[in-house]
Computed example of a mutant assay.
Amino acid sequence: MLLKDYPPHPALRDLVQCYRIVHFSFEVADSLSFKAYPPKPELCLHFIVKGDLHVATPDQDKIPFPFHMALIGQQTSVMPRYTMGDFLNFQIVFHSSSLFRLTGIPAPDLANQIVNAELIFPGIKCFFEELLYADNYAGMLTIGDRFVRSLLSRRKMEMDPVEAAIKWMIKKDGLVSLDWLAKEACLCTRQFKRNFHERMGVNPKTYARLLHFIRAYNTRNANPGWDWLKVAVDADYYDYQHLVRDYRTFTGTTPTSFHLLEQESPECKLGLADAVYKERFKPVSFF
């Protein structure tokens, strides 16, 4: 069993945040294991190599994940997922602004959507078939690098000042002024907001709140003994009530209630969570 994030080749790190391998094995093959996935500052390409994945609809009905190769756009709310049996999911986690550079697809078209990856990435099925027959995890990582290189060779545009400003915003967990970012991108504030929305699928204010929220979420997971005020202060919230507001916005519930759900996740039940939590608590480097 494994849940681990791996860095891509150094030449690909401005496009890909990490490769994520999720390999769960449950003793009762037909039992569903629940995970309330919070929104994160990432776009994720999923390859379901083994097993079954279900997602919950807005009406809370469980439906099978619609595609073996799927791109999930920028989430702004919780997406409940259920795994079962011998489950293996290889993920390519893109930096949120990178996909626009690679494909030219406006990010709002993908936000909160599960999209058939074959409609976006020609030839992706060949890479999926390679993953099916990979001998080990290392082989999967090599295939991932090769796939991203193939995207790089067909990219629609080079990195521009807007994307560079966005990555600086992410590095600072959203704690930077919009006017400063616009100036760095050599745009007026209105133009920057328009370009930002096209690349990210949400406006800068919402994305800054999402970055702040996920920092608090990772802080709490890595330090379960901390009280919520300490979490809020460490994550640079003005006070605890501001943290609660963001949790309600992005999860629909309170911090305490959401982390009780987190304890029901498959990684917690399988004893994989602690190492992952500690790793994600570290600052992310883009270069």
Rank of each mutant, 00 (worst) to 15 (best):
R209F: 08
D227P: 03
P66V: 06
G73E: 12
D173V: 02
M140L: 14
R209P: 01
L272K: 09
T206S: 15
F128S: 03
D145Q: 04
K172D: 08
C18H: 03
E129S: 01
K125M: 05
I21Y: 08
D61Q: 12
H259A: 06
G73H: 02
D135P: 08
A273P: 04
T249W: 01
Y237H: 10
G174I: 00
D59V: 05
I120S: 03
N221Q: 08
D246F: 02
F94N: 09
Y237S: 10
L43S: 03
F67I: 09
K4V: 13
L210W: 03
H95F: 07
L178I: 06
V202Y: 00
L175G: 09
E42P: 05
Y277D: 15
L131G: 02
M1P: 10
A11R: 07
Q91E: 14
K282C: 05
Y247Q: 09
P38R: 09
L99P: 07
V148G: 02
K269G: 02
Y133N: 13
D246E: 10
V16P: 04
L131K: 04
H9F: 10
F281A: 13
A216I: 14
Q113K: 00
R215K: 15
K50G: 00
K172R: 15
V231A: 01
L53G: 08
F65N: 04
K278L: 13
W168K: 09
A117F: 08
S177D: 12
D135T: 14
F121T: 04
D5S: 13
L270Y: 06
S77E: 06
T103I: 07
